[in-house]
């Protein structure tokens, strides 16, 4: 198909200009599709660099899709949605069939995740809070998560992790400092912290429900 389009635009100068432009546009797009498909196929065979390139190449297209559908949401959430889509592309990349064109697969996946993302954020219109900052009362500031809630949740994870979270997240120490007092390396501390935060956010999600 790509070869056909190329030969059409090269060998037939007699064709009207518009047809030749159309054919060469088609050719570009087909070559682009070939590249996308090659990259994703190599990625699925375990080539990480190819996968990174694939994600970089499709990102502008994904951004455009999200912008087009994302009228109701502030632009700063678009990047979050983009990241959700990128993660989904990774998790579901093996569902692309090599003999099938990549574009319909990618668009369908993106559409699903974008719709899902908007649904999760609710159909409510989000307005930038800054415009209302001086109208809103101050006293609600600390309501969502009280100190008591924090202590309850920290009680749910093991003492060592809870201590680290308290030191880093609440007392503002660095990971190195907090880990040193427990005899952990900076790397190990970050791993423990990361796991603890993930468990805590899981609890928090359940508590919200």
């Amino acid at each position: 198909m790509a070869a056909f389009a190329a030969s059409l635009s090269r060998d037939c100068p007699a064709l009207p200009m518009s047809v030749r432009v159309l054919a060469s546009g088609m050719e570009d797009r087909l070559q682009q599709d070939d590249l996308w498909e090659t990259l994703l196929a190599r990625a699925n065979d375990g080539d990480g660099a190819a996968f990174a390139r694939f994600l970089h190449i499709v990102t502008p297209t994904l951004r455009a899709v999200i912008r087009r559908r994302g009228g109701g949401l502030p632009p700063d959430q678009h990047e979050d949605i983009l990241q959700e889509v990128l993660l989904a592309i990774h998790l579901k990349r093996q569902t692309w069939r090599r003999d099938a064109p990549v574009r319909p697969w990618l668009y369908a996946l993106t559409r699903y995740k974008v719709v899902d993302a908007f649904r999760k954020r609710g159909a409510t219109v989000t307005l930038p809070i800054e415009e209302f900052a001086d109208v809103l009362p101050e006293e609600n500031a600390a309501v969502p998560l009280t100190d008591r809630d924090t202590e309850v949740m920290l009680g749910l994870i093991d003492a060592r992790s809870a201590g680290l979270v308290r030191a880093v997240a609440l007392d503002g120490k660095s990971a190195e400092e907090a880990g040193a007092s427990l005899g952990l390396s900076a790397g190990a501390t970050r791993v423990v912290l990361h796991r603890a935060m993930r468990r805590l956010s899981g609890f928090a999600e359940r508590m919200m429900k």
Binding site: N44, G46, G48, A52, L82, L86, L87
Partner: peptide
Amino acid sequence: TTRQTTDDLIRDLAARPAPARFH
């Protein structure tokens, strides 16, 4: 900063092994 984190995410995803295939 958001642009940076997306690049980080891509780097992170590319470093992960390909997930299990669907048959």
